[in-house]
């Protein structure tokens, strides 16, 4: 494919990112992860495996938790995407971030944005999750540092905090 045909294969994609309308020119099969990171400068979503195993690129796509390395940008056309950067206004973020800090839920931090999004997604669905719920809710997010125990603790603590707030 020569450069001119490569350019002509690009399509205009319109979507909402963190509450703002965005328009990008991209190949339909470009990964949502790359568009977020390279075109929009949103580097909170990380590439860990590139095949949907590790969850460090997790974002919310129309309120669904997805691995952005598996989403072709064409699929995001017309959708609403929320990344870790766009979560600051979410009522769960403060309790989650504080609990992660207090409990040791973040070590190297590379899985943390995805982990916190997965936790927020879980707490949106379950008011008072059990340990089994938390384990299941985070099953798509790999962490190599913590052995997960302190992450479970952080999520449980954030849930309790929300109830008492």
């Amino acid at each position: 494919m020569n450069p001119s045909s490569a350019e002509s294969a690009k399509r205009g994609i319109s979507f909402i990112v963190n509450g703002e309308a965005k328009k990008v020119l991209a190949h339909p099969m470009e990964r949502l992860l790359d568009v977020l990171r390279n075109n929009l400068g949103l580097t909170g979503a990380k590439e860990g495996c590139g095949e949907g195993e590790c969850g460090s690129c997790a974002v919310l796509l129309d309120d669904m938790l997805v691995n952005s390395c598996l989403i072709p940008i064409a699929q995001a056309n017309g959708a609403s995407v929320v990344t870790i950067e766009g979560m600051s206004a979410h009522s769960l973020m403060k309790p989650l971030q504080e609990s992660f800090l207090e409990c040791g839920g973040a070590q190297c931090g590379i899985c943390t944005p995805g982990m916190i999004l997965a936790a927020a997604h879980l707490l949106d669905k379950k008011l008072d999750p059990t340990l089994a719920d938390i384990r299941e809710g985070l099953a798509g997010n790999l962490c190599r540092c913590t052995g997960y125990m302190q992450i479970f603790e952080a999520v449980a603590k954030a849930a309790r905090r929300r109830v008492t707030q």
Binding site: R37, T43, A45, E85, G104, A106, I110, T112
Partner: peptide, 21 residues
């Protein structure tokens, strides 16, 4: 004492800068 991790806030907000960022 379990004081807050120095670079912790950057990590939980996604602001921490890794080389690919």
């Amino acid at each position: 004492a379990s004081v807050p991790r120095k670079e912790g806030w950057d990590k939980v907000t996604g602001a921490a800068r890794y080389v690919d960022d």
